[in-house]
């Protein structure tokens, strides 16, 4: 019985985190290139609305996902265009877009509120689903879940094992040096802003077509974009750690729901707040552990040292700073 519930929990975490994984991997790629796309919260809602409307009208899920991705690309293009080419603050543009895209989604999606629309079903994987114990839970998921797991490996491999990934990291750390080595830094930044935006758009579609199916005001994905941004920092801009952070958040969410059974007077939203203090704590911890002497101080406490090394991460050095190509 105990074993079974652990598997169910794992399956729930994998499925619940799937849309957020798409978003956090997208934002990791964008931020690794030195661009910060703060508009995630609005982008996710706007693309969720687009995906639902397209799926409802055309009955084509593929078209819906593509349309959502396109919305993500368009929003990212505004951030990148104004930030990289016009030299405006990426934070300012992203923040305005966050608010505006959310209102745009509510406004345009209004006629489609609370309608029954198509949904992504479960796709059991042949053979794997027959593995005793794990099979029935882990391999009877929607294809979004499988894709999200594959995306983590792909993102990691892309960033650390390909030439393009090397360029991407070089631009995010030191665009001038990269430019001197013959890399078109601006074009690299634009590319990964758009790629990241596409993934964030897919995340929106995953919300409205699978995880929280349907459209309405509120949709249920509100705040997820901010959480994704927080998780990217929590994970220290490393795809694998970011993914672990995302799964930790999904676990917290599920535990929050079961905790609500124990403490019925506390509304669910209170539990949803949990990742934010955690993120702040991590950031402070990261900052303090970089101080000289911190390692020496922690030397006598092995668990602390391990935690320090696990949480250590530094932001791409050129993050959010407009790069002026002379």
């Amino acid at each position: 019985m105990m074993e079974l519930s652990f598997q169910v929990l794992m399956a729930g975490v994998l499925a619940g985190a799937a849309p957020l994984i798409l978003a956090t991997m997208g934002e990791t790629l964008t931020e690794k290139a030195g661009v910060i796309n703060l508009s995630l919260d609005g982008t996710i809602l706007l693309s969720a609305m687009t995906a639902f409307v397209v799926a409802y009208e055309s009955h084509s899920l593929i078209l819906a996902f593509l349309a959502a991705g396109l919305v993500g690309v368009m929003v990212a293009a505004v951030v990148a265009g104004a930030g990289i080419y016009l030299g405006q603050s990426q934070v300012a543009v992203g923040f305005v877009l966050t608010l505006m895209c959310r209102d745009l989604a509510y406004f345009l999606g209004n006629p489609y509120s609370r309608l029954q629309g198509p949904q992504v079903g479960l796709t059991p994987l042949p053979f794997l689903k027959d593995i005793p114990g794990l099979g029935p839970v882990l391999f009877q998921q929607s294809w979004i879940t499988y894709a999200s797991v594959a995306l983590i490996a792909a993102t990691w491999a892309f960033i650390y094992r390909t030439r393009w990934g090397l360029e991407l990291r070089a631009v995010g750390e030191h665009p001038h040096a990269a430019y001197a080595r013959g890399i078109n830094a601006r074009r690299v930044q634009l590319t990964y802003a758009l790629v990241g935006g596409f993934l964030v758009g897919l995340a929106g579609a995953a919300f409205s077509l699978c995880t929280k199916p349907g459209w309405g005001r509120p949709q249920g994905a509100e705040g997820m974009g901010w959480i994704a941004l927080a998780i990217v920092i929590f994970g220290g801009w490393e795809p694998v750690k970011v993914a672990l952070g995302t799964y930790l958040f999904a676990l917290l969410q599920i535990l929050g729901i079961s905790l609500q059974g124990v403490l019925p007077s506390v509304p669910t939203q209170v539990f949803q707040v949990a990742p934010f203090p955690l993120m702040i704590f991590t950031l402070v911890f990261m900052h303090l552990s970089q101080r000289p002497g911190a390692e020496r101080w922690a030397a006598g406490r092995p668990w602390l040292l391990r935690l320090m090394r696990l949480l250590r991460g530094t932001a791409p050095r050129a993050l959010g700073q407009p790069y002026r190509q002379e």
Binding site: V91, W226, Q269, F276, L283, H287, Q290
Partner: peptide, 18 residues
């Protein structure tokens, strides 16, 4: 604490809502 004021502020916003 070396926390960017945007993320510190956002985090505290969500805590305030809680």
């Amino acid at each position: 604490g070396g926390v960017n004021e945007i993320f510190a502020g956002l985090g505290l916003n969500f805590v305030a809502v809680g």
